[in-house]
């Protein structure tokens, strides 16, 4: 019974972890290098700001999605939910403008409403999944259709637009910033940092991973499985609301095509980042890298005539698969 073999294994262990970590980062750096090679404006302040700011909606949502997926869940409804929350927010803000005029309280009310309706929407998903016991895929597929219909109905099939003056007042939330960094970027960074800390350094994050890894073990370890799982959906809902708060000032409108396919982009970003789709392991910084990879692909394609625009989707798909293959190869080497 000697402890002798203890030191022997440690070296390959370290190498294996590195491979896994490096995968998405290598992909990101490769994309940046390609972008620099193809267009001199790629690294310009304006372009970088554009890419980061537009990534922020999906990014903020994807952070929440990382928790849901890590805990072994899934949420397909976030895109429609974002559209619905945006529509609701615009509608209510327009109504309040009639009463209160173009004033800050209207914006505060709108923001509060977005966060609360996101929370409620997440709560509904979560309760149906945890208390009624319907599979997450089905529940959120259902709510996805419901929210998409609701926004179409709210907008009468058209577009809901914030009143012009209100839009001007609210506009700086997307276009403004401090020290040259725009608000959506700051918001995204804040959410990502907090998310990373919560995931890695709090009991909640650890419990999510435990539940996703083996729900029974989690239950036998006296973790309140249902409550934690419910919390992941609520958190995601609130983050969807927060993303909407950043989204609405951009164009000041919402329509049936708002947030279309955001759910898939968010899920793709999470998976590219190295979180396991079946749950049990998640990392927020990976998700952030995943979101940036997805955004950069679109950006680079727009900045060049490299391929026919008909093939944009194919390039995106190939990069997604490649990024994941790189990682899984790293994982398989263990």
């Amino acid at each position: 019974m000697s402890m002798a073999p203890a030191q022997k294994i440690s070296t390959p262990a370290r190498r294996r972890i590195d491979l896994q970590v490096v995968g998405p980062i290598v992909a990101l750096i490769a994309l940046v290098l390609i972008g620099m090679a193809l267009n001199s404006n790629f690294l310009s302040y304006a372009n970088i700001t554009n890419v980061l700011a537009r990534s922020s909606f999906i990014g903020i949502i994807a952070v929440g999605m990382t928790f849901v997926i890590t805990a072994g869940g899934l949420d397909l409804s976030v895109g429609s939910m974002a559209a619905f929350v945006a529509g609701l927010m615009i509608l209510v803000m327009n109504l309040l403008t009639d009463r209160l005029g173009v004033t800050l309280p209207v914006i505060f009310a709108g923001v509060a409403l977005a966060l609360i309706s996101g929370l409620v929407a997440g709560l509904i998903n979560g309760l149906l999944i945890t208390r009624v016991g319907i599979e997450a895929f089905i529940v959120t597929l259902g709510t996805m259709g419901i929210y998409r219909s609701l926004i179409t109905w709210l907008a009468d099939g058209g577009t809901l637009s914030l009143g012009f003056e209100m839009r001007e007042l609210y506009r700086p939330v997307y276009y403004g910033g401090i020290a040259g960094i725009s608000w959506p970027i700051l918001a995204f960074v804040a959410v990502a940092i907090i998310g990373e800390i919560v995931m890695r350094h709090t009991a909640f994050g650890r419990h999510c991973a435990a539940i996703g890894s083996n729900e029974r073990v989690a239950r036998y370890s006296s973790i309140a499985v249902l409550r934690v799982r419910l919390a992941t959906y609520v958190l995601l809902g609130v983050l969807v609301g927060f993303a909407v708060v950043m989204y609405v000032p951009r164009l000041g409108s919402a329509s049936a095509s708002t947030g279309l396919l955001w759910e898939l982009e968010a899920i793709a970003a999470v998976i590219i980042g190295g979180t396991l789709l079946k749950g049990g392991f998640g990392r927020i910084w990976g998700t952030v890298v995943g979101v940036l990879i997805l955004s950069l692909i679109g950006n680079i394609l727009n900045l060049t005539d490299f391929v026919s625009p008909y093939l944009n989707g194919a390039i995106q798909g190939a990069v997604i698969i490649l990024a994941v293959v790189l990682q899984r190869k790293g994982a398989a080497d263990r």
Partner: peptide, 24 residues
């Protein structure tokens, strides 16, 4: 099946039921 998280390390498994004792 119910005792240990096989794909996690020793530390995560050991403290899982009592995380609140390890700081909050």
């Amino acid at each position: 099946g119910a005792g240990l998280l096989l794909d996690k390390g020793l530390r995560e498994n050991l403290t899982l039921p009592l995380l609140e004792r390890f700081g909050g």
